[in-house]
Design a protein around this nucleic acid. Structure first.
Length: 721
DNA sequence: GCCAGCGGTAAGGGTAATTAAACAGA
DNA sequence: ATCTGTTTAATTACCCTTACCGCTGG
């Protein structure tokens, strides 16, 4: 995760690589992202693009997946599972079978197995929060130096929101913060010393570990691999025969039976004599059992089949896959464990598979194999030898997530927040042979649950540059923005950089000039058609409180053609008049009618208000305007020196609106969207998508780059401040 | 003294990533 | 025969669960 902070305008834009999306059982997509307590972020924007790159720079086809977070909202709950359930598990130490049974009988369930990235993020954020609350700099002080009594609430507190037993949290934290863990490969010298220490201290792993500068578990594990009697390398026939006999004997099974569980490998290794328990297990599960039971070879078709079968399972999390079930009756599968490892090699075809949600990963893999199937020559070109090579990096699918993190959930929620639940829409744009014709709009659930509003991200952003009155206008497209500038004495535009034609700097002589001007200033971008217009807005009665006055101007976005003044007045206390800038993408008629169909004024109001307050923040990466949800914490936010500085800078009296309508409008709302879910949202008017439709013939050459460039642009943008 | 709960250790089953060896084709 | 690139097998660092134990406070 790279973090770039801008001081003068308190604009913070982060690229958060570790953000992931998961889907809950209701179909809600959940954005998990680490929280950063030091910032006053307000919202998130996510753009996600998947592209297929073909070897030899022959980028001819691919998919674009775009995920846009349409609205941000804090959840009051820690976990979708519900607080009661979570707390019952995460506040219990239980390690015994009785404890477990007791909780199970009460209907509790909890997570087992490897910790997911999301969980680790939650844990880390909880720790951060704990440290901050107590003014402690380093967690190791608590973990390794404090007495039990001093840290008595530590583990319980940081376990919040994690559906794991307290003990699991404890283990995890110890490992994470123990710098004698993760030391890496043992050197021959260490092995020698370890042997000596083992003789001297027996199984006192703590002592041995201390002497070696390794954790107790590390030396214990290493000793398990060191058996003087162990052979290495290829197994002899005699050894294999012995292994098979021992396994069947100890499990009371017959040769040919499939045995994948319930084997005491320590006991097996003892009987085999020449191999360690891990060697025995690996040999059995990855080869011998399969061989004995008449297994067949794994083929390319099996690989595709595996992806499809996993996709059919429709699980939101990889951990939910039942590998035993999946492996059943599949002769080329050597064991469930083997199948899982096979899955791992397949997964790596997605270069950044770790950064994407499981459903997106599956989608990407399906697409990848679809492409390969449709165009077998790709495979041949890629594997020089002509052998289909599923593991080669010649066809790597990149799925990129760009996140501008603008919302600090920690500042909003008093409880240890763990995840943001944000309705997002994923649009799959398949653009193989005829990109323009295949706008495969595939929407992944938009059920918002308790969430009230959402946002349509316009494809451009205004970004304060740090110089009052100067903003960067940025689109998320790599395409250029031919401009027509309506003459204005006070506002000028320049390109941000020759290399970034999509960035335009909006200059005003001073904030006063921009905001107090009685002249309307119109800037028109031909592609995409964006008009920036400044108008005097005395008629707008809204104002914002001192607390909200954290930037030169609050920049607002709306998907309505005209800002509803009354609503704004409701939204902002009419106490102090401050300058406002509204960025307002217009939308096409189709969208209007769709939206109108979709019901109540109340809904529209709700959307409107929120849009005014939050959505523009998202779009503009302007984190300074607290969302309604954040208001309770405004006082706290104001204590930040950065914010105060900002307030001082804000000395403009009149209100001005910078209207940026986008005649391109929005893509029509998908029918999939449930109107009752308070999600009257549509796909975006995104220059990338637009670009694909309008200029399909050049899609091939630009497909792989726009978002990554854009992502870079975002960083550059902020860096330059 | 008893007991429940907490904090902790050790054993062992397991996973994921790396490395070594085998293999296929040019 | 040799080289090269790929696949498979083996290895190992690290992770997680489970059983169990000592301590503490009610």
């Amino acid at each position: 995760m790279s973090t770039v902070e801008e001081d003068s305008d308190t604009v913070t834009v982060e690229t958060v690589n570790s953000v992931t999306l998961t889907r809950d059982t209701d179909g809600n997509l959940i954005l998990h992202c680490p929280q950063n307590v030091s910032e006053n972020d307000q919202s998130f924007e996510v753009t996600m693009t998947a592209t297929t790159e073909v070897a030899d720079d022959e980028i001819t086809e691919g998919t674009v997946t775009q995920i846009q977070i349409l609205q941000n909202e804090q959840l009051d709950e820690i976990s979708p599972l519900g607080n009661e359930e979570v707390s019952a598990v995460s506040q219990a130490w239980f390690t015994t079978k009785e404890d477990k049974d007791s909780l199970t009988n009460k209907g509790h369930k909890w997570k087992q197995g490897m910790w997911s990235k999301e969980e680790i993020d939650i844990l880390m954020n909880n720790i951060e929060r704990y440290l901050k609350a107590r003014g402690i700099k380093d967690a190791t002080e608590i973990i390794f130096e404090m007495s039990k009594d001093e840290r008595k609430d530590f583990y319980r507190t940081i376990a919040w929101g994690l559906n794991r037993p307290l003990f699991a949290v404890y283990r995890r934290v110890l490992r994470m913060y123990d710098d004698r863990n993760h030391v890496g490969k043992y050197t021959p010298e260490e092995i020698e010393k370890l042997k000596e220490l083992r003789i001297k201290h027996g199984n006192d792993w703590a002592t041995i570990g201390a002497a070696l500068g390794r954790s107790a578990s590390s030396v214990k594990d290493r000793c398990r691999l060191m058996k003087d009697t162990c052979n290495t390398g290829k197994w002899t026939e005699e050894e294999e025969k012995r292994l098979a006999e021992v396994v069947h004997e100890l499990t009371s099974t017959e040769p040919g039976d499939i045995v994948t569980q319930g084997v005491s490998w320590a006991a097996v290794a003892e009987r085999v004599g020449t191999r360690s328990e891990k060697q025995c297990r690996s040999k059995w599960l990855n080869y011998l059992n399969w061989k004995q039971s008449g297994g067949t070879e794994w083929t390319k078709e099996d690989e595709i089949n595996l992806i499809l079968r996993i996709a059919e399972l429709d699980v939101a999390d990889e951990n939910d896959i039942n590998w035993d079930l999946l492996a059943e009756g599949w002769s080329s599968v050597r064991s469930p464990q083997w199948l899982r490892s096979k899955w791992w090699t397949i997964k790596r075809q997605i270069a950044n598979h770790k950064d994407v949600s499981f459903p997106v990963l599956i989608k990407g893999l399906k697409q990848l194999h679809e492409n390969q199937k449709n165009n077998p020559t790709l495979l041949e070109t890629k594997s020089g030898s002509g052998v289909p090579n599923s593991n080669s990096n010649s066809s790597v699918q990149h799925v990129q997530i760009r996140v501008a993190r603008l919302e600090d959930s920690t500042a909003i929620s008093p409880s240890p927040m763990t995840a943001l639940q944000i309705p997002v829409q994923i649009t799959h744009v398949s653009s193989a042979d005829s990109p323009a014709a295949t706008v495969d709009s595939e929407t992944i659930t938009l059920n918002s649950g308790t969430l009230q509003t959402f946002e349509i991200l316009p494809s451009f952003h205004l970004q304060p540059t740090g110089t009052p009155g100067t903003y960067l206008l940025q689109t998320s497209s790599s395409q250029g923005l031919p401009l027509t500038l309506t003459a204005s004495p006070t506002v000028t535009l320049t390109a941000a950089a020759p290399a970034s034609p999509e960035q335009i700097i909006v200059h005003a002589l001073s904030p006063e000039h921009l905001l107090n001007t009685s002249d309307n200033v119109t800037v028109q971008c031909h592609t995409p058609r964006v008009i920036i217009q400044t108008v005097a807005t005395e008629d707008i009665t809204s104002s914002i409180s001192q607390a909200e006055l954290t930037v030169d101007s609050d920049i607002h976005s709306s998907d309505f053609p005209e800002p509803p003044d009354a609503l704004e007045a409701d939204t902002f206390p009419d106490e102090i008049h401050q300058p406002k800038i509204t960025i307002e993408p217009s939308f096409n008629d189709a969208h209007v009618s769709k939206f109108s169909d979709q019901n109540s004024t109340e809904l529209m109001n709700s959307v409107m208000v929120r849009t005014e307050e939050e959505i523009s923040d998202t779009d503009l990466k302007q984190e300074d305007t607290p969302s309604p949800l954040a208001r309770a914490y405004v006082t706290e936010a104001l204590e930040s020196p950065t914010i105060e500085e900002q307030v001082d800078q804000t000395t403009i009296d009149d209100e001005t609106i910078l209207i940026v309508p986008s005649p391109h409008g929005f893509i029509q709302t998908s029918d999939v969207i449930d109107t009752e879910s308070v999600l009257p949202l549509t796909t975006l008017t995104d220059p990338i998508l637009q670009h694909h439709r309008e200029e399909s013939n050049i899609i091939g050459s630009s497909l792989g780059s726009p978002v990554s460039e854009d992502s870079k642009d975002v960083e550059d943008l902020v860096n330059c401040h």
